[in-house]
Design a protein around this nucleic acid. Structure first.
Length: 424
RNA sequence: GGAGAGAUGGCGGAGUGGCCGAACGCGCCGGUCUUGAAAACCGGAUCCCGCGCAAGCGGGACGGGGGUUCGAAUCCCUCUCUCUCCGCCA
């Protein structure tokens, strides 16, 4: 949510920057509403001040034993006017909040302008794409030969898009989760949390998934709860409606399943693990003082990259352009892994600075050293998403004999196993 | 699921219709004293909104929402959450 004061004071700047997001929203309505709202508040406050004064007088008169029924009748009328004004204010504020919730965040100055993914900028690449003396297989062929997953039987359970990991595949998932959590907690200073996977509508609104993304999420109407599409939602909302007293920055890391309906992506990447309705992810979340959030974003990207470097996987980092960023982000980097079997780059991480956008929605504040209460800046980044990491691991590690070499860093988590070998 | 109790400032805890943004204690900040510290004493401290260049003025907030009343922390309704007991249960 944008600050209404910013919209009021610098409407042209806001318009300008919103335009770069391909956002169709118009702030004229919000501004008109804001005008009406303030006028109504001024009037209501004046009436209340009047009523307070008269009420005080009634108290004094009664104490003196005088009759006050006349003056009371008059005051009742003031009360009715106040009630009407308050109702008007409430209605205006509701509408205004609804409009504000639909306005995306403003892109940071350093974000390139662009309409779609073609405007994204590669800021760096790490590692060399794996070369093969044979035609590399894709992860589906490899995984089935190695007995890592079973898509056919999985479909029997939940339909398409819900993977069933089996044997060494299930262990690989567990090993990767463990490895990533250990790395972030011991090397990068995050505190591990394990949050609920079902959350309320208020929680989904706090981070910006609702109201806009309702169709992309799983909803349980009987309890009005939502399955989380990312750990960002519960972890960021841990501090909702709070004045944080502990020192910033706060750094949290969580492993959770993520549930996505992928409503708009029907027919895309339907094969294998690349686009699924349920997957596991390790997610990093930071709450930081506003002045430090862009440094924190660079660090956060580095934390995600450290995972891939430790696993020896080639990747590139993209700076997303204004038109390709998610709704709540002010600046966002994507990290993509090279997948030779797939023959392309796969997004495994998205690291964003939301500035105060989420904090304002979710009402998360801190006390500055000067003692002022101020909205924090929130950030989050995948560190990283599992299925596509598995894809890259398999496709890059494959050998001529059909086995897959595991990175050294992972072996302790695989009971010393250094490679996955095909079933007899 | 059933029965009961409760929710007040950073914490504890008073307050049952006007004198309450809220006693008192702890903690916090500033000062006096001290070589320094502690103790003691004195003083100060909530947040949100509106108006105003500002000093300031006004309004609102005692879990959330609604109601009664000239006036609500206080009375009524409702929701949420917490605690205790019973039942069920991974």
């Amino acid at each position: 949510m944008l600050d209404i004061k910013l919209i009021r004071e610098k409407p042209d700047v806001v318009r300008e920057r919103l335009k770069t997001r391909r956002s169709a929203v118009d702030i004229a309505d919000v501004l008109a509403l804001d005008e009406r709202r303030r006028a109504a508040i001024t009037e209501a406050d004046r009436l209340k001040s009047e009523r307070n004064e008269v009420s005080k007088r009634i108290g004094a008169l009664k104490k003196a034993g005088e009759d006050t029924s006349d003056i009371q009748r008059q005051t009742r009328e003031i009360g009715e006017q106040i009630a009407a004004r308050d109702a008007e204010i409430r209605e205006i504020e509701e509408t205004q909040r609804r409009l504000l919730l639909a306005i995306p965040n403003l892109p940071h100055d350093s974000v390139p302008e662009g309409g779609d993914a073609s405007g994204n900028v590669v800021v760096r690449e790490w590692g060399a794409k794996t070369e093969f003396p044979f035609a590399p297989k894709d992860h589906v062929a490899l995984g089935e030969a190695l007995g890592l997953f079973d898509f056919e039987r999985a479909a029997r359970l939940s339909g398409a898009g819900f993977p069933l990991f089996t044997g060494p595949g299930a262990r690989l998932e567990r090993a990767l989760i463990q490895f990533m959590l250990d790395l972030h907690t011991t090397k990068h200073g995050y505190v591990e949390v394990s949050p609920p996977h079902l959350v309320t509508t208020a929680t989904m609104t706090g981070t910006g998934q609702l109201p806009k993304m309702a169709d992309d999420m799983y909803h349980l109407p009987a309890d009005d709860l939502w399955l989380i599409p990312t750990a960002e939602v519960p972890v960021t909302n841990i501090y909702r409606d709070e004045l944080i007293r502990e020192p910033l920055p706060i750094k949290r890391v969580a492993h959770t399943p993520c549930f996505r309906r992928e409503a708009g992506a029907a027919g895309k990447d339907t094969r294998g693990l690349i686009r699924v309705h349920q997957f596991d992810k390790v997610e990093m979340v930071r709450f930081v003082p506003p002045g430090t959030s862009y440094d924190a974003l660079e660090e956060l990207v580095g934390d995600a990259e450290a995972v891939l470097q430790a696993l020896g996987l080639a990747y590139r980092v993209l700076l997303l352009c204004s038109g390709d960023m998610s709704f709540a982000a002010a600046k966002c980097y994507d990290i993509e892994l090279w997948a030779p079997g797939h023959g392309g780059w796969l997004e495994v991480s998205s690291c964003s600075n939301f500035e105060a956008f989420q904090a304002r929605r979710a009402n998360i504040r801190w006390k500055t050293p000067e003692g002022r209460n101020e909205f924090v800046h929130t950030l989050n980044g995948s560190g990283v998403a599992l299925p596509r990491l598995v894809v890259a691991l398999l496709e890059n590690g494959q050998q001529a004999d059909g086995s897959v070499l595991l990175p050294d860093a992972l072996r302790p988590y695989m009971g010393g196993l250094d490679r996955l070998t095909p079933r007899a």
